[in-house]
Computed example of a mutant assay.
Amino acid sequence: MSSKAAPSPLVGGAYLLAGNLLLPLRLVLGWTYFSAFWRRLVLENKLDPDGAGYLGEKFNHFLPNALGIRPAIEFFVSHPELLWWKLLGFTVVEAVVGLAVMLGFMTRWMGLATALLAFGILLGAGWLGTTCLDEWQIGVLGVSAGLALVGTGGGRFSLDFWMEKRGMKIPGSRLADRLVAWALEKRGVVVVAAAVFLLTLATNQIFHGGVWGKLHNLSVKPRVELSEAHLDGGALGVTLYRVEGADVYGSFAIALRVLDATGVEVAAWDQQALAGLAPTAIENRYVAKVKPGAHSLMLPLGAKAEVRFESDGLKRLRAGSYRVELEDISGASWATTLEVP
């Protein structure tokens, strides 16, 4: 009796043809994930916390408008030492999954893995994209492409096929094949297709208003939230949180003013004063950091910090409500209320 394993019920016929037809998709999809590892650790070191372009800062950019996973993102960007391990593990997973998809090894399971990776990208970064809704497109296309590979397998031009022909055991292949066969019998493909399409429409609407109503793109113009304004020992403390705008370009604050109820300026800091803030005056909460620049106070996307501003004028404030206003170099401004008891 031959010791070779029985061939998979989904290795020939229409399934083989479908897998052959999706070869270009499999190679491109695999490379998009493997190339993440290639860019971060081979071409450059993007996992150096002290280096330019640290991946942790990019991950921090997702935070303000992530869908459903914001608490998890905030936890990691608040704990830099854990974030590094998370990014390393994620990069290794992307490398393994991407390479396996290109080779066509455990194709159905790796297709599911790519769909899950893309789903995570969609939830975290689907709101980003200055021109073509870049991250949303990457996410929804990755989910649908990965699930397509779950259904078709790798086809003739895959390591799975090569191993099947030689009677070699592919880990998890029998279970994957049975699940796919069962889903096809129960018209599960229609359910999956409908679910993916609804996910596409829902996230397009939530992130960009792309189905009905007014279109919006949170990556175009910077927006900074001011909160928790208070006086402490004659200094103004206020929390600054950059929540919108391009992830590759900072917000550059050139003025901060405190105005009384009649609009009269009672304290102010110009761009030189903001650029000259001492590091001890800024208490950053995340990996992306608010910091003084050459000519302004720089606020990268996702950065949140409590900043202290000192002025003799603050010591003479009477009880009442005041307006704290931050001005960006673009001319945009944002404000919060300061209550002086």
Rank of each mutant, 00 (worst) to 15 (best):
residue 17 L to R: 10
residue 128 L to N: 06
residue 248 V to A: 06
residue 277 L to V: 07
residue 297 L to I: 09
residue 51 G to M: 06
residue 302 G to V: 04
residue 193 A to K: 01
residue 43 L to V: 12
residue 144 S to I: 14
residue 328 D to M: 11
residue 93 V to S: 03
residue 318 R to E: 13
residue 339 E to S: 09
residue 290 V to A: 03
residue 207 F to R: 05
residue 86 K to W: 15
residue 21 L to V: 14
residue 21 L to N: 10
residue 76 F to D: 02
residue 280 T to G: 11
residue 262 T to D: 04
residue 146 G to H: 00
residue 198 L to F: 09
residue 69 I to H: 12
residue 169 K to N: 15
residue 244 E to T: 11
residue 7 P to R: 04
residue 102 M to Y: 14
residue 129 G to C: 08
residue 132 C to V: 15
residue 148 A to S: 09
residue 210 G to I: 10
residue 321 S to V: 02
residue 146 G to T: 08
residue 106 M to S: 05
residue 294 A to G: 15
residue 135 E to C: 14
residue 158 S to G: 01
residue 133 L to Q: 06
residue 166 R to W: 02
residue 284 N to Q: 05
residue 99 L to G: 04
residue 48 D to G: 12
residue 50 D to C: 06
residue 16 L to P: 00
residue 304 K to T: 03
residue 89 G to M: 13
residue 21 L to C: 12
residue 212 W to T: 14
residue 21 L to Q: 09
residue 225 E to G: 02
residue 141 L to M: 13
residue 225 E to T: 06
residue 306 E to G: 14
residue 316 R to I: 11
residue 106 M to I: 04
residue 257 R to W: 14
residue 84 W to Y: 14
residue 145 A to M: 04
residue 298 M to W: 15
residue 138 I to Y: 11
residue 333 S to F: 14
residue 12 G to W: 07
residue 269 W to K: 05
residue 198 L to W: 07
residue 79 H to M: 03
residue 10 L to A: 03
residue 206 I to R: 10
residue 327 E to L: 13
residue 195 A to N: 10
residue 135 E to Y: 15
residue 65 N to Q: 09
residue 185 E to Q: 11
residue 266 V to E: 00
residue 122 L to F: 08
residue 154 G to V: 02
residue 291 K to Y: 11
residue 199 L to I: 13
residue 114 T to M: 11
residue 76 F to W: 12
residue 146 G to W: 02
residue 144 S to A: 15
residue 214 K to L: 15
residue 306 E to I: 12
residue 265 E to F: 10
residue 78 S to G: 14
residue 123 L to D: 04
residue 99 L to T: 10
residue 269 W to Y: 11
residue 340 V to M: 00
residue 279 P to T: 14
residue 303 A to W: 10
residue 279 P to V: 10
residue 40 R to E: 08
residue 281 A to G: 12
residue 287 V to I: 12
residue 16 L to M: 06
residue 129 G to R: 01
residue 255 A to N: 14
residue 106 M to T: 05
residue 109 W to K: 07
residue 276 G to M: 10
residue 216 H to F: 01
residue 290 V to Y: 05
residue 196 V to K: 08
residue 327 E to N: 12
residue 207 F to S: 05
residue 246 A to E: 09
residue 282 I to A: 00
residue 171 P to L: 12
residue 298 M to H: 15
residue 165 K to F: 08
residue 44 E to D: 13
residue 334 W to C: 02
residue 32 T to N: 01
residue 259 L to T: 03
residue 244 E to R: 12
residue 287 V to Q: 07
residue 80 P to C: 06
residue 257 R to T: 12
residue 186 K to N: 10
residue 169 K to T: 15
residue 95 A to N: 09
residue 96 V to H: 08
residue 310 E to Y: 07
